[in-house]
Simulated assay, not measured.
Amino acid sequence: MANLVETASEAGSFKTLMTVVEAAGLLELLESPGPFTVFAPTDEAFAKIPTETLASLMEDIPKLKQILSYHVLSGDVRTDNLDELQSAETVEGGLVGIDKSEGGYKINDAKVLQADILTDNGVIHIIDTVLIPALVSVN
């Protein structure tokens, strides 16, 4: 089984995510034994962010790293765990809200498009929106 980075790279729908993870220096973390849970925004999710904003984040590595680590939980958190949680602490240190509804799961304002993609060092949940920690401004 592939790790988180290999699985996301092979999927083909996370090109922007893989680019920014590499730029932020988080590849090593996501290739480590973990386990980690990654809320992975698709390329379409990143496309919602204005190009200039994304470009400025690529130049502000501490802020980029903060935003990306807000998408990662320590541990293997699958949907059966999400059922029991209302929030979870991220690697960044902030909390993400977890909401289960008839349509599936939401992490803050992001809809989970596909859940429980298992890797050898964790699990990936595909989301439709980039998560931004409360105290981070991305203008």
Rank of each mutant, 00 (worst) to 15 (best):
V136F: 08
V5W: 02
L29S: 03
L30G: 01
E92P: 10
A115K: 03
A24K: 06
N3P: 03
S13H: 08
L29H: 00
I126S: 13
S101L: 07
T42M: 00
H125P: 10
A8D: 00
E6K: 10
P62E: 03
L26K: 13
M1H: 10
T53N: 10
P50C: 00
L135D: 15
L118R: 14
V72A: 01
T53W: 07
E102S: 15
A88W: 02
D76M: 07
K111R: 14
K63P: 06
S13Q: 09
E52N: 12
D99F: 12
F39D: 03
G122T: 04
G104E: 01
V123R: 02
L131E: 07
V112D: 00
D76H: 08
I49W: 01
D116H: 02
K65V: 09
I98W: 08
M1A: 11
L118N: 14
E44A: 15
L29K: 03
A55W: 14
T37D: 02
L68K: 09
L135G: 15
K15Y: 01
I49S: 00
A11I: 02
A110F: 09
T119N: 11
Y70F: 06
L82A: 11
L30N: 00
E31M: 09
S137M: 15
K15C: 02
A8P: 00
V20T: 06
V136A: 07
T16G: 06
L64I: 11
M58Q: 06
E52R: 12
D128C: 10
Y105K: 10
R78H: 04
N108H: 11
L95W: 08
V112P: 00
I126G: 12
I67R: 04
P41K: 11
G103F: 01
G34Q: 02
A110E: 07
M1K: 10
Q86C: 10
S13P: 04
E31P: 04
N108Q: 12
I61N: 13
Y105E: 10
L26R: 14
K65W: 11
T42E: 00
V112S: 00
T119P: 09
P50S: 01
I126N: 11
L85V: 14
V77Y: 02
L4Y: 00
V138T: 15
P41T: 13
E84S: 13
L27E: 13
L57H: 04
F14S: 01
L113F: 12
K65N: 14
L26D: 13
L30F: 05
I132Y: 05
N121R: 10
D83Q: 04
L54H: 04
I61E: 13
L64S: 07
E84T: 12
I107T: 10
V130E: 08
A8L: 04
S56G: 11
T129Q: 09
N81I: 07
E10P: 03
E44C: 14
G34R: 01
S13A: 09
I124L: 07
S87F: 11
P62S: 02
G93H: 05
